[in-house]
Design a protein around this nucleic acid. Structure first.
Length: 700
DNA sequence: CGGTTGCACTTTTTT
DNA sequence: AGTGCAACCG
């Protein structure tokens, strides 16, 4: 089997350069994953490297899975763990390292992983204990401040020193408290997984040397989206042979809001002197027309490397821009177009994707697709594992696995209702923390308390009993799926969700899915890990369904036909980016580039005159990115735009400063005009943005 | 203690 | 528009 067959010269060079640092600058659609996979296969087959000596880091679990499958195919081996190199996301790899060696820095092997919800819940509790009102300091903002601090490796003490503004001073206090409570619960949040690994390598020479020796070859995908903590992990893992290979494209860096810094890829040659650089510039994915349009957008960015992406492919159909009246018409236009091709068998539904800036934009599309009977799948949005009934059961499992996990306990203590309210819970937890027992032991011994009512005691003791017997099942190494089944029966959870409402059936079906999902895991630990780190974009693709997802989720994917919707200033680029300045605008532009380069044959860009946002109709103008494309695109006429142009003329009858009367709000003055929307300041003091089409204003 | 009702707030993007 | 949270009442 020739591993180099079917590769171009640049790709071959990347595969065969196995000694020393290697930087692969891979343009969109240049066969990056293929190159990486072949490189690993080459190491295994021709360079006598053992699988466990290779560490390959991908951006999503899905990417890791795909690479594993392709590698198995390429080497003719079964896709089994034993044969496979270490592959996974930074977070996944870190969990593995910390479970193994975390005890060296005081992390218990049975830590639980807190997701964003858990973290915000804990922050709220911390704020309560500190008597900080969530009116002035938003838990959400605190969470993001703590996350940024952690990703820059700033601990609570250091944060406090530089905290000048009142908000930062509040955050400093909450951050410290949060960390205390989190540690007491035996939990690590997403960011901890990374920074605790950094700490492990800093504080334990033994651990660091162990892995530096083990990993003879390290490969990192999507290197442009690594953050400071991840960068540190890489630096510390690379041994003196410097066999590190990173792949990335600064043009596709879209995660700076999460702490990613594409300077990491620009600085690679400085960090690893003598690095060889291979550029993959031939695009195998898109037509020339699509590539040209995408290029005309990205070239407006100032901060970027020079590249010349080229293709052998023919021009293909021109990129189409279409203006529509509103989000409903936008969705309708797409649905009709898809059905026109799908019903005659020209394309399968799975060949289409619709990309948008925000998850909320999926509503209108879903509605139209349902009306047109188009099968679709939503990637992201509300994840399966975010559903209430699933999170409840997971909370039970987390508590069983880590009996100090207060967050999970608080979530389930009264689910199903056991007559235990806030007061009883508080009393119990106070007693429990002073007793030195973990939560489950404390439940069993709850009769020793004096402060609780007999009724509450009985309920808590009963809960303790069923948890204890479940724990016994875990110790007997029962399959996670058996444990879940026993759990939903013995705790009364099944009876609880069958409440006679129409949703009861859905919930029960979801539980069944959970039970069957859990069947493929040997231990509770491995199942919980998968659940915690599973991202919403890790959904398997379905050939029979149109894919709907955010532009971010689309990274790394490709589709024959791509629709990008909501191409309006204020939405894409987002108003936030427009406010914050050129750096953010450039990131939005990269996001646009990423979206466009997902398309293989057809690319359609749509913008709407008006759009429902927060339940209010707002009016925007076409995205500046469409202007960037200039003549690289074809503009489609839209009949309804003509129709609605009449209204636009109508709007012009008003001017800023005009006095008007509204039957609803009284008399006021027009202070702003934006498309069909006029802002009126009424004599009552309130300012309303009104649609002249419906508001029936009377000009005075 | 628990359920209901009404209000306020949300919206970038995710491991 | 939908959801989460706080206050109120039974």
């Amino acid at each position: 089997m020739d591993i180099l067959a079917g590769l171009n010269d640049a790709q071959k060079s990347a595969v065969e350069t196995t000694r020393g640092p290697l930087l692969i600058l891979a343009g969109a659609g240049s066969g990056k994953t293929k190159t990486l996979t072949h490189r690993i296969a080459h190491l295994l087959a021709n360079e006598s490297v053992w699988p466990n000596e290779i560490l390959a880091v991908t951006f999503t679990n899905k990417a890791a899975r795909e690479m594993r499958e392709r590698l198995a195919q390429l080497t003719g081996q079964a896709n089994t763990r034993g044969f496979m190199p270490w592959m996974g996301t930074f977070h996944g790899i870190c969990v593995r390292l910390l479970r193994q060696d975390g005890d060296k820095i005081g992390i218990q092997a049975n830590f639980v992983i807190y997701d964003e919800d858990d973290r915000q819940g804990l922050i709220k509790q911390a704020m309560k204990e500190l008597s900080i009102s969530s009116d002035q300091v938003k838990p959400r903002a605190v969470s993001s401040a703590i996350s940024s601090a952690k990703n820059e490796l700033i601990d609570p003490a250091e944060y406090a020193v530089t905290a000048n503004y009142p908000f930062q001073q509040s955050v400093a206090k909450i951050y410290a408290k949060y960390e205390m409570m989190r540690k007491a619960a035996g939990a690590l949040d997403f960011d901890d997984l990374l920074i605790e690994t950094v700490r492990l390598f800093r504080e334990s020479v033994e651990a660091r040397n162990k892995y530096r020796t083990q990993f003879k070859h390290i490969l990192i995908d999507e290197y442009q989206d690594t953050n400071a903590a991840q960068y540190n992990i890489v630096k510390m893992l690379v041994n003196d042979d410097h066999n590190i290979c990173v792949v990335g494209d600064d043009w596709q860096s879209i995660y700076s809001w999460r702490g990613a810094d594409f300077k990491n890829i620009l600085n690679f040659e400085r960090d690893f002197p003598g690095a060889k650089v291979v550029k993959l510039e031939q695009n195998y994915r898109s037509t020339a027309a699509i590539l040209e349009a995408a290029h005309s957008v990205i070239s407006k960015n100032v901060e970027r490397t020079e590249k010349k992406l080229w293709t052998d492919a023919e021009a293909g159909a021109p990129v189409q821009v279409q203006g529509v009246y509103d989000e409903a018409e936008e969705a309708f236009a797409i649905a009709s177009r898809i059905n026109a091709q799908a019903t005659i068998g020209a394309r399968k539904y799975g060949e289409f994707a619709v990309l948008y800036r925000m998850n909320a934009q999926s509503y209108a599309l879903e509605r139209a697709f349902m009306q047109h009977r188009i099968p679709y799948q939503l990637v992201g949005g509300v994840r399966f594992y975010d559903r209430k009934e699933i999170k409840d059961v997971i909370a039970y499992l987390k508590l069983l696995f880590q009996p100090n996990d207060r967050m999970s306990f608080s979530r389930i203590v009264n689910v199903p209702t056991r007559g235990i309210g806030a007061t009883s819970l508080e009393k119990f937890l106070l007693w429990q923390s002073n007793s030195g027992m973990d939560i489950i032991s404390a439940l069993i011994n709850v009769e020793q308390t004096s402060t609780l009512q007999a009724r509450a005691k009985n309920a808590l003791a009963a809960l303790g009993e069923s948890l204890r017997s479940l724990q016994a099942r875990i110790e007997a190494e029962s399959n996670p799926s058996d444990i879940i089944e026993q759990l939903i029966e013995s705790t009364g959870y099944r009876r609880y969700i069958l409440d006679g409402t129409p949703q009861a059936e859905d919930r029960e079906a979801n539980l069944s899915v959970l039970v069957s999902d859990a069947k493929s895991f040997a231990t509770l630990a491995s199942f919980l890990e998968e659940v915690a780190l599973m991202s919403s974009v890790d959904t398997a693709s379905d050939e029979q369904k149109v894919t709907l997802m955010t532009l971010h989720a689309a990274k790394g994917l490709e589709f024959p036909v791509v629709f990008m919707v909501g191409m309006e200033d204020g939405l894409f680029p987002s108003s936030r980016a427009l406010e914050e300045g050129p750096k953010q605008l450039e990131e939005e532009r990269r996001l646009c580039y990423v979206g466009m380069t997902r398309a293989r044959e057809e690319l359609h860009l749509l913008y709407a005159q008006s759009r429902l946002q927060f339940g209010q109709r707002s009016y925007g103008s076409p995205s500046r990115f469409l202007e960037d494309m200039g003549h690289a695109v074809a503009t489609m006429p839209s009949p309804s735009m003509q129709r609605h142009d009449d209204f636009t003329d109508f709007v012009m009858e008003y001017d800023i400063g005009d006095q008007v009367r509204s039957s609803q709000f009284g008399v006021g003055e027009i202070v702003d005009i934006d498309g069909m929307a006029v802002s009126v300041q009424f004599s009552t003091g309130v300012t309303k943005k009104l649609n002249v089409e419906y508001a029936r204003l009377e000009k005075l």
